[in-house]
């Protein structure tokens, strides 16, 4: 854990950080708004003092109220790890700019996130389903997608409606099993 990194990040991004920089064990975490995402990613990638040039992981999170996209980066300068949480994606129509312009290797991880959450990454050349079949209609990792075990708790009360027809917008009407605003 590196206090200097926290100071540097706070200094670099200032107002753009939604919450203060958090550090726990060897992880540093910043939370930014959707509009700043591309900019912040470019800065942490290119800034000679930061140089987070390795994308370790990219994933989506559905908190029940909004969607997040989480980037885990590793610095080639100091070996620090950085977590960037891009918050505030609309659950009905989640859209975010793709990170493939910095890391071409993010392409499949974005495809996976699209497949599982329905988050559309603008600028990804190949955004289609990767695991699920092409004619699949729902997004399994969203919190309104019930597993067979949970079907009895679902709005349809025991009817196994695991795959629902319709758009993400229709799904918001459904009850959620869990919500975690702080996720």
């Amino acid at each position: 854990m590196d206090r200097r990194l926290a100071l540097l990040l706070a200094e670099t991004f200032g107002e753009r950080l939604l919450t203060p920089v958090r550090q726990r064990y060897d992880e540093t975490e910043i939370r930014i708004a959707l509009a700043d995402a591309t900019d912040v990613l470019r800065v942490v990638h290119d800034d000679p003092a930061l140089r987070f040039s390795m994308l370790i992981d990219l994933c989506g999170v559905d908190t029940g109220e909004e969607m997040h996209v989480v980037y885990h980066l590793s610095s080639s300068l100091s070996g620090d790890w950085l977590r960037i949480i891009v918050a505030g994606l609309d659950r009905t129509a989640p859209r975010i700019a793709s990170a493939t312009f910095l890391w071409p290797g993010a392409e499949w991880m974005e495809r996976e996130t699209y497949d599982m959450f329905g988050i559309i990454f603008e600028g990804n050349r190949d955004l289609r389903r990767i695991y699920m079949p092409d004619d699949y209609r729902s997004f399994p990792l969203r919190k309104d997608f019930y597993l067979a075990d949970d079907a009895s708790r679902s709005p349809a009360a025991g009817v196994r409606n695991m795959e629902r027809v319709g758009t993400p917008a229709d799904a918001t009407a459904a009850t959620l099993l869990r919500k975690s605003p702080g996720a």
Binding site: C59, V61, E107, M109, S180
Partner: peptide, 15 residues
Amino acid sequence: PFRMRIHDPSFVHLQ
């Protein structure tokens, strides 16, 4: 766990 993301290197390498 509220969300559990699993990152696998093979997935990236297959690209």
